[in-house]
Design a binder for these strands. Structure first.
Lengths: 203, 203
DNA sequence: CCCTTTAGAAAGTAATCCCTTTCTTAAAGT
DNA sequence: ACTTTAAGAAAGGGATTACTTTCTAAAGGG
C-alpha cells in the first residue's frame, strides 16, 4: 500500500522563512486589501501557522508595515543613464509606472483604513514615512545630470515644473491602479515637460 | 426642584432625519475611516439607534455609498465666470481644492479597504462610478468659454495640457488629504498651464 | 550525537461588530 | 380624535478575528 502523499514536511528557517512570510503578506494585501487581510489568511498563504507570525511581529499592523517595507526594498526603481534628459525621463517614468503599479494604491488604502490604530500615527504621517523614499531622490540625479550637460537650468526652472512629471505619474497610479501606458508617459514628457523646460533654457 | 435636563425627546422624521444620518456617516468616515466606522458609532453620532439605520440601508456598505453620494450632492463645485481663462481656472481649481478636500482620499480608502465585499464591484469600478461626475464636465465649460473668447485653441492644445491642472489638484488632494494651498494653485496655472497654452496660440 | 531552538498544528479566549428582535411611544396622516 | 407609521432604546445572536497557549518534532549548532 502506497503511503498517501509522504509529504516531506520540510521546515523553512531564518531569512528564507521571513521573506516568504512578508511576500505572502504583501500578496494578500494586494489581493484582498488591508481590511480583509487576516493573520490566518497570511499564515495559510505562507503555508505556516499564526504563531510563526506573532513570534516575529507583535500585531497585524507591524506585519503589514514590514511587508510594505520589504516589497519596496525588493523592487528598487531603475534610474538608467541614457545620455539625454528626454531619454532618462522616459525610461525612469516608465520604470516608476511599472514597478510602483499597485504600490501606492495599496499603501494609501492601508494607511487610511486602519493602520493608524496601533501606531498612533495620522494617515498623513504614515504616507509621508512610507512614500518619502520614492518621492525625490532618484529625480534629483536625473535633473543634476541634465543640468551638467547644459540641457536644463536648475536655477531658473520652477520646482513645480520639475515635480510635475512625477506628480502626474503618481496621479495615474493612484487613479487607475495599473501601470501607466507608454503613450501617456511620452505625452507627459513631450507635450508637457519639455516645452516648459525649453522656455527656461540657459542663454 | 428643577427636573434634571428635561430632554424634550423630539423625534426627527423623513428627509430631515435621513440627512442627519447621512451627514453623521460622512463625518464618521472622514474622522475614523471606513474600517473603523461602525453602525453603532454612526448611530451614536446621529443621536439615534442602529435599527433606524437598518430600516433605510441593508448594510454598512449601502450606508457608506449613500453617505458619499449625499455629500457629493450637498457640496457642488462652483464654476464661476470671471471673464478670463486665468481667472476662471484659479477660481475653479481653488473651489475644487476646497470642496473636494478629503473627498477623494476618503472614497479611495473606502473603495480599497472593504467596500467591494458586498457590492461585488472591483475597486476600479467603484472609483469610476463615484468620481466620474467630478472628472470632466465643469472643465469643458471653462475651456469652451476661453475658446470662444480666443484665449485658447481647443483644436491645437493637447488633451494632456487641458487635463493637467485638474490632474495635479487631484494628485495633491490624494497625497496631502487637505485643501490645496493658494500658492500651489497659482503655480499650477502660471508656471505650468498658461506657458503651455501660449505655445499653441491661434495665429 | 546531543541540545537548543523554533516551525507548525490544534484549540481556545476575549473582544468586536454586523445585524436582528422586541417593545414603547412620539409623530404624521386623515 | 383616532389610526398608522416609524423613531429610539435595550438586548442579544452569530460570525469573525486578533492574539494566546500548548504541544510535537524538525532543523541547525556544537
Amino acid at each position: 500500500m502506497v503511503p498517501e502523499t509522504p509529504e516531506p514536511a520540510r521546515r523553512r528557517h531564518g531569512a528564507q522563512l521571513e521573506s516568504a512570510l512578508l511576500t505572502a503578506a504583501w500578496d494578500e494585501l494586494v489581493e484582498v486589501g488591508y481590511a480583509r487581510l487576516t493573520m490566518g489568511s497570511v499564515a495559510v498563504r505562507a503555508r505556516t501557522s499564526e504563531p510563526v507570525l506573532y513570534r516575529r511581529w507583535a500585531n497585524k499592523d507591524q506585519l503589514v508595515l514590514a511587508a510594505i517595507e520589504h516589497h519596496r526594498k525588493a523592487d528598487p526603481v531603475a534610474v538608467p543613464d541614457t545620455g539625454t534628459l528626454r531619454g532618462d525621463l522616459l525610461a525612469h517614468l516608465t520604470a516608476v509606472g511599472e514597478t510602483l503599479s499597485g504600490f501606492f494604491g495599496v499603501v494609501m488604502a492601508a494607511a487610511c483604513s486602519g493602520l493608524l490604530s496601533d501606531t498612533g500615527l495620522t494617515p498623513s504621517q504614515i504616507r509621508e514615512q512610507v512614500m518619502a523614499a520614492q518621492r525625490l531622490p532618484p529625480v534629483r540625479t536625473i535633473y543634476r545630470r541634465a543640468h551638467d550637460r547644459g540641457e536644463l537650468d536648475l536655477e531658473r526652472v520652477p520646482a513645480a515644473v520639475l515635480a510635475m512629471p512625477f506628480d502626474l505619474v503618481r496621479h495615474d497610479l493612484l487613479m487607475d491602479m495599473g501601470p501607466v501606458r507608454p503613450a501617456r508617459v511620452r505625452s507627459i514628457v513631450d507635450d508637457l515637460f519639455l516645452p516648459l523646460v525649453r522656455d527656461h533654457r540657459t542663454g
